[in-house]
């Protein structure tokens, strides 16, 4: 547990989603670990909490998650992997918000693929947000990191 509630919630949600829906084995990322050839996705939220979630996954790890999610021995085309990371991002954001603000719902935008710079931007905007969290996890194939910046409107 940390003293940052949103970080704890984000970490718990991330682990729960990855283990339950993607059957992933997860460990804490080594300090200082950096992404290698990541695919990145962004989703915005508004309502009880307004802000942004970005998820970055190293491409080999994304490939493995995709196979696990679809129950196939080999992942399909890249479009299927993009579809899956969008769904993953949607689930991470939704699960985190539901746990963080259980009384009220926040509306999520449609997730979209973006560049790593967008993920780094989310991290660098932390000083402008009420709440910020960054969780980095090591999964088979590489690194997965989730960043969120939130501004309470309730």
């Amino acid at each position: 547990m940390t003293t940052n509630k949103i970080e704890d919630v984000l970490r718990d949600a991330s682990v729960s989603v990855l283990e339950t829906m993607f059957f992933a084995d997860i460990t804490a990322a080594i300090e200082g670990a950096t992404h290698v050839d990541p695919v990145t996705c962004v989703i915005d939220c508004k309502g009880a909490e307004t802000g942004t979630f970005t998820v970055a996954v190293d491409r080999p790890a994304l490939h493995i998650l995709c196979c696990a999610f679809f129950g196939e021995d080999e992942a399909g085309p890249a479009s299927q992997e993009w579809e899956m990371i969008c769904e993953l991002t949607n689930m991470l954001a939704g699960s985190t918000l539901s746990a963080y603000v259980p009384e009220h719902f926040s509306q999520l935008s449609s997730p979209s693929i973006c560049g790593l710079d967008r993920h780094l931007e989310t991290c660098s905007n932390k000083d402008q947000a009420s709440e910020f969290a960054l969780v980095s996890l090591s999964i088979e194939g590489g690194l997965l990191s989730v960043a969120c910046t939130l501004r309470t409107t309730r």
Binding site: N90, E103, F105
Partner: peptide, 9 residues
């Protein structure tokens, strides 16, 4: 079936 499990929803 939803990611939103808020009481409100």
């Amino acid at each position: 079936v939803s990611t939103d499990s808020s009481m409100e929803r």
